[in-house]
Structures are given as structure tokens and as C-alpha cells.
């Protein structure tokens, strides 16, 4: 899977807020086409890191490249190549499903004809044609989540960042959501996902586990379980937490 090369290259990334070090010399790579799980407890520095990679925040120091561009100088080029879904799902509640899709597509500068065709395909694929003109406020959370993800990858980005995308939804909806993620990787989109549901880590190709601003472990779920003599990632996580 790494034949296509690296899509994210991070070397010695540091982010300080005054005296507090949120990211302490992070170094990792993400390869094209993989699902990269970014795990850690709340406050471990996941959100800080994802914000830097998305261009929402500047690092204090370090060399960081996203989609081949430097985060200090190539922010605008990076923006057109990535998608982002926040933990709040970030849809407009007073817009209909269709309006939300068309609006976000417009923000990414897609031509109108392409928007029309792709909107139709998306509605059919998600099997939500019947609620296309329903306000987002009125649809169930699980659907909002799927819609938010579909909107984030609507413009066919090379890479999509998912910040805690499965918060607050039931296990079945989470399962269906991961099917959507696999479908996206099938189209060649790289997925960078943060989560604190350890069972979800099993779905990832590789996971990194953060604690206290540092990356404590980074490997495939299988290798991590072997390395820590654990039955699942949750156990790995607990063992890492104890070591600290």
C-alpha cells in the first residue's frame, strides 16, 4: 500500500501554548491509500495535531508536508487537496440535505454541472433521495454523520481528516460509517482518523497512539497486539498508559 508514497510527512512537530507542550516532537508518515488511526485519550494532543495538518493552526516548529506541500508556505494548495469532517458534523441545520451538499461543493469550486450529477449519484448511493429536501435539523444523527462524511469527500480530495467522526452514534451506525470509509479508500482517498473508541482502531491499517503530547506507539493493529501481548487495541492502550 505504500507504493504510492507518502501523503503526510511529519518530522519533529512541536506545538506549544505558552509553557504547555501540546505536541512534543511528533514524527510520523502517512502513506497514500491507507486508513491511519490517530488514537489517544482526550487531551493527548490529537486535535492540536490534526489542526496543524489541516492548516487551522501553525506549528511552533518542525517540518511538515501534507499532500506534497509545506504547511508553512503551501497552505492554499493543501486546502484544495484535503477534506475535513469535524466532530460536530458541521452541517447547516436550517439547510436541506441537498442544499448542504450543493453549498459545500460550491465552496470547493466544483462546476455546477458536476455538482448536479454528483449530488444525484450521492443521494442514490446513500439511499436518501426521499429526504433530499428535508432540513438537516430533522434527520437522525446517524444520517447526519454519513452526510457530513460524504460532503467532506465530495470534491474527491487526496486525503480526508476525520476528527472524532463517530462520537454520539450507536454501534450499528458506527459500523455502517466505517463501511463508508472503506468505500472512500476504494476510490483512492487516504483517511486520517482520530478516535477514542479503541475497537475502531482495528478497522485502521495503521494506528498511532498518543499520550501526553508524544507518540507512544505506531504500527499495524496486529503488530501492536503482538508487541504488547494484548488481545485487543484497548489492552494495548491501557498497557501504554500504565507505562507512562
Amino acid at each position: 500500500m505504500n507504493s504510492a508514497g507518502k501523503i503526510i510527512e511529519v518530522k519533529d512537530m512541536v506545538k506549544k501554548f505558552g509553557q504547555f507542550v501540546a505536541n512534543d516532537h511528533l514524527t510520523f508518515d502517512v502513506y497514500r491509500g491507507e486508513i491511519f488511526g490517530f488514537l489517544g485519550a482526550n487531551g493527548a494532543g490529537k486535535t492540536t495535531a490534526i489542526k496543524i495538518l489541516c492548516g487551522l493552526s501553525l506549528p511552533t516548529s518542525g517540518e511538515i508536508k501534507v499532500a506534497g506541500y509545506d504547511v508553512y508556505t503551501g497552505r492554499e494548495q493543501i486546502k484544495t487537496r484535503i477534506g475535513y469532517m469535524s466532530q460536530k458534523f458541521s452541517l447547516y441545520e436550517d439547510l436541506t440535505v441537498k442544499e448542504n451538499i450543493r453549498y459545500y461543493a460550491g465552496i470547493y469550486g466544483l462546476p455546477r454541472r458536476e455538482i448536479n450529477i454528483k449530488t444525484k449519484t450521492l443521494l442514490e448511493r446513500l439511499n436518501i433521495c426521499n429526504i433530499a429536501n428535508t432540513l438537516v435539523r430533522e434527520i437522525p444523527l446517524g444520517w447526519k454523520q454519513k452526510l457530513a462524511f460524504s460532503v467532506a469527500v465530495f470534491h474527491d480530495p487526496e486525503l480526508v481528516f476525520l476528527d472524532e467522526p463517530t462520537g454520539g452514534v450507536d454501534p450499528i451506525a458506527r459500523r455502517q460509517f466505517w463501511e463508508l470509509i472503506y468505500e472512500a479508500t476504494g476510490h483512492g482517498i487516504t483517511v486520517f482518523v482520530t478516535t477514542h473508541y479503541m475497537d475502531e482502531a482495528e478497522y485502521c491499517h495503521r494506528v498511532s497512539i498518543m499520550s501526553e503530547g508524544k507518540i507512544s506507539a505506531l504500527d499495524t493493529p496486529e503488530n501492536l497486539k503482538k508487541q504488547y501481548h494484548a488481545n485487543d487495541i484497548n489492552e494495548v492502550f491501557v498497557k501504554i498508559a500504565r507505562n507512562n
Binding site: 492548516g55 487551522l56 486546502k79 484544495t80 475535513y84 469532517m85
Partner: peptide, 9 residues
């Protein structure tokens, strides 16, 4: 949604 806008082009 502001976050999403700031990430967008």
C-alpha cells in the same frame, strides 16, 4: 462549520 470553512479553499 467555521472550522470546515477555514479548512476549505
Amino acid at each position: 462549520t467555521m472550522e470546515v470553512l477555514l479548512v476549505s479553499p
